[in-house]
Amino acid sequence: MRRRPAWPRKAADVAVKTVSALAAAVGLGFLAWILVVVVRHGAAALNWTFLTSLPAPPGGSGGGLGNALLGTVVMTVLACALGVPVGMLAGVYLAEYGRGTRLATAVRFLANVMMGIPSIIIGLFVYAVIVLPAGHFSGWAGAVALALLVLPVVARTTEDMLGLVPNSLRESALALGAPHWRATVQILFRACRAGLLTGVLLAVARVSGETAPLLFTALNSPYWPQSLSGPTANLTVTIFNYAMSPYPAWQQAAWGASLIITLGVLALTIVSRALARERK
């Protein structure tokens, strides 16, 4: 039997390695491109007035998006106040009380599915359940929509983190006579504190950049958020409205808002990942 020459195989190998390196470079290139564009356009819009004052009227220049920044922060915090405790408790059910039960299996499965449901559908749901009966858009509805996005993420990470705690720790706590809830809250939660925090931060990072669920719930507003029972200004919907407007000053403001959102979300993501790595 004649030996086939090795060089075609080696050439194919080198070609594939080159292509794979190029593909990775393309991926990173797009990341860098987007970040550079956002920083360059956004930095031109950013200044103290931009962060603290109300928007300029259509076509006017100056002004800022202080109201939208405040609205986004308030709604995100509220969404966490609603979504994190419920999500954690659901995670506790999955990992502790309901382990192995059919209900837990169903909830775990549906929580995974829920994470993949488009956020605009969640917005539609909250519109039908809260906005329609109330008769008006509201910041509360926006916060609830965001909370529904936080819920499954926190539930699943809580379950995963509780699952990583050694069983002996759980049994020791119970053997000392601690009721199960105390063992969970005071011993198990403490053991996986960093993991829980990572999950919460990732969930916050995810919802603070969301636009679609706010379109039909919080809507937007050119005023300071006085109460959350009316349309509430927020950065992401403002970006959408301003970018689609014909006014250069508004498009500029949209870039400024984009920079704030991008920096915020990336910072949250990077911090939570650093925490996760520390744990390992």
């Binding site: 990341l31 491109w33 987007i34 564009v37 956002v38 990072a205 950049g209 969301e210 636009t211 679609a212 992401t236 970006i239 959408f240 970018a243 949209a254 870039w255 984009s258 959102i261 991008t262 979300v265 990336l266 993501t269």
Partner: peptide
Amino acid sequence: AIPSIIYGMW
């Protein structure tokens, strides 16, 4: 991690 709306702007 980059929000959807940033992809839209870009």
